[in-house]
Design a protein around this nucleic acid. Structure first.
Lengths: 138, 138
DNA sequence: TTATGTGCAAAACATTTGCAGGAGT
DNA sequence: ACTCCTGCAAATGTTTTGCACATAA
């Protein structure tokens, strides 16, 4: 018989969680590493990766598999949608209601057992829209 | 004055396009490489990456930035949604209608200039559902 | 005390790029 | 001819992992 192992609340984990909770920017693992390192200078990048993975597995945080080259992390675990800037890669929340029916509709059309969905909008953020205007004037 | 450069239809590009058109499996760059290599054994992986990128830039093919570790490619350029198996990573099409209103709804709630959206469902494919059942019996 | 976690460094992957030679138009 | 393109190999960027030591419970 095997008992469920305890996940220890180490200093590293507390601080990762705190720092992630402070921002709304959906940081990458490396950005979390930079944030945490200001308070724990000797933490390793591997530790950050291991713990972000672990915490997203247990549902304490959200791992965002959005487009782009890096995964991103979010302390807000309530389901919501995202938008990514095609120019600078920034990711923001989109505050529209969840489409609750869509999983059932998709289930009727698919052989998969559907467990969830995510919507990713793409576009240009305010800053990048302005820059594009300026560039296109030239 | 700068004229639009011509994109040459090289043998490599033809064959990449043909092979991608033969499948509905949304292959990764490496899988396309394996498919193409059977007909062009000396093609380089870099060429495959370069050309998939180029062809998706010009809209000849679709680059899917779905979850998981690799990008995937699709010869079907008409917009459609996808589902990814959380167990084996396979990606399939989901044949439900596009939600045409959603970009406008999101635009009202966001400071971004919205250009598009994609929905990714997650779940278990038929094969992996079966396996999970068998495993959970033990 | 002991299972779990950490720091460090190396390895593993995925993708991009520089360059010299090759090929399409 | 003259670009544009390719193969090759090296570089880059991201994430994972092995291991000896450290630490929370």
């Amino acid at each position: 018989m095997q008992h469920t192992p305890q996940m220890r609340l180490t200093t590293q984990r507390q601080i990762i969680l705190e720092e992630l909770g402070k921002v709304t920017s959906h940081p990458t693992a490396n950005e979390v590493y930079d944030m945490v390192r200001k308070r724990l200078p000797r933490i390793g990048l591997g530790t950050v990766y291991r713990n972000l993975e672990l915490m997203s597995d247990t549902g304490m945080i959200l791992k965002l598999e959005v487009g782009g080259t890096q995964k991103r992390f979010d302390a807000t675990v309530a389901p919501h949608y995202h938008i990514r800037c095609l120019s600078c890669g920034k990711v923001d929340d989109v505050d529209i209601p969840m489409i609750s029916d869509i999983n059932r509709i998709a289930a009727d059309k698919s052989k998969y057992q559907i467990l969830g969905h995510h919507i990713e909008f793409t576009g240009l953020c305010h800053d990048c829209s302005s820059v594009e205007e300026k560039v296109s004037i030239n």
